[in-house]
Design a protein around this nucleic acid. Structure first.
Length: 472
DNA sequence: CTTAGGG
DNA sequence: CCCTAAG
């Protein structure tokens, strides 16, 4: 309930640059309340904070550091001075911690909350009232909380004893660092995130998206890279991504070297302008033909994908997979293709076939017959520049397949309503496809149909034998 | 270049 | 959708 909300907040957290000079966080009563609520959280279960707290704790990971910090914290209740200084120091941040983070094993981290309010950070937050500007605010509470988080990263189990020394503490909760958390950059990121999160606690600001900005602001990439990457588990690239990237590279190589197929030469500047144009178009107007990453990615990627696309359509003049084509006709009758289908699929330039297109296709087939795909494309799909004759043929093939499967399903399962799932084509279309398939049988099917199994096999065998004889 | 077929 | 072989 509450904790869920809190976690959600954390996930959506907006990362701003954390300013850690004197005033780390303004203290608000609400914040205190929130912190309290945090501490009052049920101690029972694991809470995944995206490893933010844990990573922050990592700072204190060394035993001495831990003790020191704890002592400081316990003594004067202001961790923020020490902590924040270390934390904020840009150089110290990356340098001192860079290596450390790498070694930090993201594992379970126990958060030792203080059941006793006197010793609890909440108390410290109260001290804030004495020195408002000093950031004794609830942030202290948050930090102290994180301080209490003791990583077992260095195989050392959480030192509850140290905490216990200070006073009676109950383990309020256990924060488990998300094992899928990354090291390196991500750690940094997490830390900043954590700070921000603390910020959040204090200010009670509404959380907004835009975590990414945080990374760039707080972390210097060089430092992160300098440290040997341990394991990047942050976002494991999807299979699709890997495939695409690899194939892309290979294609680039092949085509640039071999250059068997004509390749449209597009200057880099042109590409950039195009991408700029693309960026200005609202995303809704794009189908999955243009993967969204293209826009968020670096320029190189953009140009790369653009290039790839250009190479894919060497014939068509000037990128005639133009944006207008997406918005104009398609948006009108999209009812058949839910947006779910538009999310990127295995194919790069996939456009869902609309019912109108299908009907057009069927008209074309009834008019020109099956196999004259070029004619059909020329006369009926000329407007839709993105449908090649091959596409049309494929669509027809798929339609036939769908119909047969549908018939099959009907036979097997009895009635299966078509309208429910978008995958099943509407009855009208199906019936018409069936008619057309009877009138204009698909060549492949005709052969299969007309060849009776036994005879066909025999004939095939005989042919094979003949061929073999010839060959030998 | 177009089509058929497989992936 | 994409790629390739065959006509």
């Amino acid at each position: 309930m509450d904790r869920d909300e809190y976690l959600r907040k954390c996930s959506n957290m907006k990362c701003q640059r954390v300013q850690v000079e004197g005033s780390y966080v303004p203290s608000l009563q609400d914040d205190e309340m929130e912190v309290e609520h945090l501490f009052e959280e049920p101690r029972n279960d694991y809470v995944s904070l995206d490893g933010s707290l844990a990573s922050y704790t990592a700072l204190n990971d060394k035993d001495d550091l831990q003790l020191e910090v704890l002592d400081d914290f316990l003594d004067d209740g202001f961790l923020d001075d020490v902590e924040i200084d270390n934390f904020e120091g840009t150089d110290g941040f990356s340098d001192a911690r860079g290596g450390y983070f790498l070694d930090f094993d993201f594992a379970k981290v126990e958060l030792l909350g203080s059941g006793a309010n006197e010793d609890s950070p909440v108390e410290n937050s109260n001290s804030e009232s004495q020195s408002p500007g000093v950031s004794g605010s609830s942030t202290v509470g948050g930090i102290s909380e994180s301080t209490k988080v003791l990583p077992n990263s260095t195989q050392s189990k959480c030192k509850i004893e140290s905490l216990d020394e200070t006073g009676p503490h109950d383990t309020n909760g256990i924060i488990r660092n998300n094992p899928s958390q990354p090291s390196n950059v991500d750690c940094m990121y997490n830390i900043s995130l954590d700070i921000q999160h603390l910020h959040e606690l204090n200010n009670g600001y509404p959380l907004a998206g835009g975590i990414l900005s945080c990374k760039k602001e707080n972390v210097t990439v060089e430092n992160c890279q300098s440290a040997p990457p341990r394991e990047k588990r942050f976002r494991k690239p999807t299979q699709r991504y890997i495939e695409e990237s690899s194939t892309l590279k290979s294609k680039e190589k092949v085509r640039t070297t071999g250059a068997k197929k004509k390749r449209r030469s597009v200057s880099c500047s042109e590409l950039h302008t195009r991408t700029k144009r693309l960026e200005n178009i609202p995303i809704e107007k794009f189908s999955d033909n243009i993967p969204i990453e293209k826009f968020s990615d670096s320029d190189s990627d953009v140009t790369l994908s653009e290039l790839q696309h250009c190479m894919k359509y060497p014939k068509k003049e000037k990128l005639d997979y133009d944006y207008e084509s997406f918005s104009s006709e398609e948006s009108s009758d999209e009812e058949l293709t839910p947006k779910r289908c538009r999310t990127k699929d295995r194919r790069k330039n996939q456009r869902m076939w609309t019912t109108s297109e299908v009907t057009k296709l069927m008209d074309g087939i009834s008019e020109y017959g099956v196999g004259r795909w070029t004619d059909i494309q020329r006369f009926l799909f000329s407007a839709a520049g993105y449908r090649t004759p091959t596409d049309i043929r494929d669509k027809w093939r798929n339609l036939l397949r769908a119909c047969s499967s549908q018939r099959f399903n009907k036979k097997e399962e009895g009635e299966q309503d078509d309208e429910n799932s978008p995958r099943t084509l509407p009855l009208s279309v199906a019936s018409r496809v069936l008619e057309l398939s009877k009138i204009h049988p698909y060549p492949n099917r005709r052969n299969k149909k007309r060849s009776f199994p036994g005879i066909a096999n025999q004939s095939n065998r005989s042919r094979r034998n003949v061929r073999r004889k010839k060959c030998t």
